[in-house]
C-alpha cells in the first residue's frame, strides 16, 4: 500500500519526534557518564560518542520503528541518524566533563 506524503498527521509526527529526542537525550547523558567513568580523553571521547549514539539510533530504528520508519517519520534516515547528532553532543560533553572531573580528582 502506497502511503502518500499528504496523509501524515502532523501531531503524530511531532510526538514521534519527541520520542526519538527523548531516547537520544537519555543516550547522550548515559554515554557521557560512561565515558567519564572510563576517563576517555580528547578524540577518543568524541569517537565514543559518535559510535554510541549511532548504535542507539540503530537500535531505535530496528526496535521502535519495527524497520518500517516511513510509517512514523517523513524523512527517517536523515531524522534518526544525522539531524540531531551535533545538537545532542552538548549534553554528552557536560556529563563527560562532570564525571571526568569527579573521577580524576578522587584518584
Amino acid at each position: 500500500m502506497a502511503i502518500d506524503n499528504e496523509f501524515y498527521y502532523t501531531p503524530s509526527i511531532v510526538a514521534n519526534k519527541h520520542k526519538l529526542q527523548h531516547v537520544q537525550d537519555v543516550a547522550s547523558l548515559v554515554l557521557g557518564v560512561a565515558s567519564g567513568i572510563m576517563s576517555l580523553e580528547s578524540i577518543n571521547g568524541f569517537v565514543f560518542y559518535f559510535i554510541g549514539i549511532t548504535l542507539t539510533n540503530l537500535l531505535f530504528y530496528i526496535i521502535c520503528t519495527e524497520q518500517q520508519p516511513y510509517k512514523f517519520f517523513k524523512n527517517p534516515l536523515h531524522e534518526i541518524f544525522i539531524k540531531d547528532l551535533f545538537n545532542n553532543i552538548s549534553g554528552y560533553i557536560m556529563m563527560w566533563c562532570l564525571i571526568y572531573a569527579l573521577v580524576k580528582t578522587n584518584s
Partner: peptide, 20 residues
C-alpha cells in the same frame, strides 16, 4: 558555559511530557 549548552537534555527529561 558547558552547563548552559548541556542542560537542555536534562530540562527536557524533567519536563518533557508537558512540553510535547
Amino acid at each position: 558555559f558547558v552547563n548552559l549548552f548541556g542542560l537542555k537534555p536534562i530540562y527536557s527529561l524533567i519536563m518533557g511530557n508537558d512540553e510535547a
